[in-house]
Design a protein around this nucleic acid. Sequence first.
DNA 1: TCCTAAGCGAGACGGTACGTCTTGTCTTCCA
DNA 2: TGGAAGACAAGACGTACCGTCTCGCTTAGGA
Lengths: 196, 196, 196, 196
Amino acid sequence: MESKVPQVPVSAQSAKDRRVRRSQQLLREALLELILEKPYQDITVQDILDRADVGRSTFYAHFLDKDHLLKSGFENLQEVFETLNLRSGGKPQSEFETIMFLIHHVESFQPIYKALMSKRGADWITQEVQSIVIKVLRRQLENQPVPGDIPLEVLVQYRASALMGLIKWWLDNDMPFSAEQMQRWFHELSALPVHF
Amino acid sequence: MESKVPQVPVSAQSAKDRRVRRSQQLLREALLELILEKPYQDITVQDILDRADVGRSTFYAHFLDKDHLLKSGFENLQEVFETLNLRSGGKPQSEFETIMFLIHHVESFQPIYKALMSKRGADWITQEVQSIVIKVLRRQLENQPVPGDIPLEVLVQYRASALMGLIKWWLDNDMPFSAEQMQRWFHELSALPVHF
Amino acid sequence: MESKVPQVPVSAQSAKDRRVRRSQQLLREALLELILEKPYQDITVQDILDRADVGRSTFYAHFLDKDHLLKSGFENLQEVFETLNLRSGGKPQSEFETIMFLIHHVESFQPIYKALMSKRGADWITQEVQSIVIKVLRRQLENQPVPGDIPLEVLVQYRASALMGLIKWWLDNDMPFSAEQMQRWFHELSALPVHF
Amino acid sequence: MESKVPQVPVSAQSAKDRRVRRSQQLLREALLELILEKPYQDITVQDILDRADVGRSTFYAHFLDKDHLLKSGFENLQEVFETLNLRSGGKPQSEFETIMFLIHHVESFQPIYKALMSKRGADWITQEVQSIVIKVLRRQLENQPVPGDIPLEVLVQYRASALMGLIKWWLDNDMPFSAEQMQRWFHELSALPVHF
DNA sequence: TCCTAAGCGAGACGGTACGTCTTGTCTTCCA
DNA sequence: TGGAAGACAAGACGTACCGTCTCGCTTAGGA
């Protein structure tokens, strides 16, 4: 993210920058490795330094703290989602397509989402992801009519929470069903009124 | 809480027990007060001790840590919910009634839920509450047919997440709508299929 | 010591007094037992309470602290020494006799002195004993001429330190020599001038 | 002490070492200052940290505890004494010279010995010093004949105790006599047989 | 080819919170 | 009613991390 819009071609980047990137990458990888081994909360900065074989000052030169390091690995996530609405030649997608995309996206990156959104991960990561999902869904839903007097935001929160809850359960239970199955059920559930 | 169903009248409880209870209560109240003032994460054990005017050893004599203290205040929450299914003369409620009850219950205890489930509170508290809601809903839903091939658990997670998400949004935004309104919308949303 | 000089005959003492004495005795015994097991410094008040099977307040009702409890067991020590000068029909003893008595006295109560003056014991106990020895010796020596211009106090400190040092070494090394032997050597050493 | 025999000149010591030394020195000085103000026992680690303006972790990085810090300031004491026997061109000194040296040495460092060996200091420090004196005297005395059947160790303990006792009294009474006077008296006392 | 500036490791440091421990006080129970 | 039981406040302890810092080493890019 720091050099998202490089003024010079990658090939012309200084060796300095390359070293910086290498350090950052080592740290990110070390953290991901460690998350697979023990709960995020229990990982200390020192653990990361030892694993990455990097000095303390280097860490703090690049990242504010552990959370920032983790977040830095997901800075392109939103970007990925942003491209959603522009796919298929700029033609806007339907709500269904958007949700379908999200479910399949999670399946594609299963290991990373599992690590980060399970109990081993950090709570705030789930919320971070959820807030991105909310943003994406809001943009989607504000372009289609909401029946009755339901405020847009209420609809957005409802859908996003339901979707995230289902996905989280899916991940926590080692994804016993296919993405297609989940998406089909989600669709069915969305039309299953509360029983009187 | 520990002796919900005392075998002896309160008046016969030993003074020792009364002192213990008083200490615990002071600590619980101090913590709740502090949560209203600053994020749960930033509250130190010392803050609580100072506020409750209680010694450090007393704290650790009764509670494992800050989390345990907070949790102790909610031990009767589940119990409250458990009584749900036995209301109305033991006759089981409908899913709708259960959800309605939950929404109204939150409204009744608005300040406490707001403090604990907002950003100021702890993430794990929201999950704690959600897991209770899940339990209650599961018990409710396993007594009614699930259409199609949707597994019960999928339905439970879907409903609980949607409900919790909506409630959380409601609290985070200072409850701009009445409980009746929220419940009505929830019902409508439950039958609003994903748009193609 | 609290009831050293009872106003009433022992037989008439109230049951209350008997209880008090019993508690005090239990505590004293518990402490002595513990000293044999671990260094005095490492013994906590709680250790003593557990061993004596006595409540905390009982301890503090009778003794100021751990040191006071230990000291209370030795309050008659000085008294014993005091009788020294009055032995043999009130005729004052010689310095030699006094020292001889001290050495034999320590031998008689070997286990207790060993426990209290060794490394396991408390430093201040050794000093306490030393200060009693100093008092006794001072009373002895002020009745006999000091050669040259040596101040009495200097002589007293010299003799007492030498004697106590020797006794402490004797105890620390499990008393490998008889009291007679030690006393003879002490006498010889007292006349062994520093080598030029 | 840590690098008593440096392979490299002091000027070449790493800055890291210099920083470490500075911290340790600050702590030692703070402790000595505090000992002059209140009893050693009453000094808390926090007191030392505040005075030295040093962090808690730094303290525990260098020293096990308060005692260890104090002891560290005396690690070169023995060394000083060790050089005794090698003075005057390697020619061994007489017992008299050794004792004379010790008395004058104490006088030279009067403030520090007063602080450490008085009631304000710790008991174990006196013993530490005494054990060093014993070692020095033992080395001295094993090179000269002991009259009669007196074991060397008995002589050593006798002399060392007498000397230390006298010195302690001297310090406790604000050194009312000169070192020369004390040394002369010690010599005279060593030949003053116990009175029959 | 040398010089210089920056990235880096190493890790000492000040600081803060923790959970443990012990002390001496204080309140209540009970015989 | 006074001795016993034990809950309590106070606060020091040693540990664990944090984020800052100072220091030399290495190294690449310009002189």
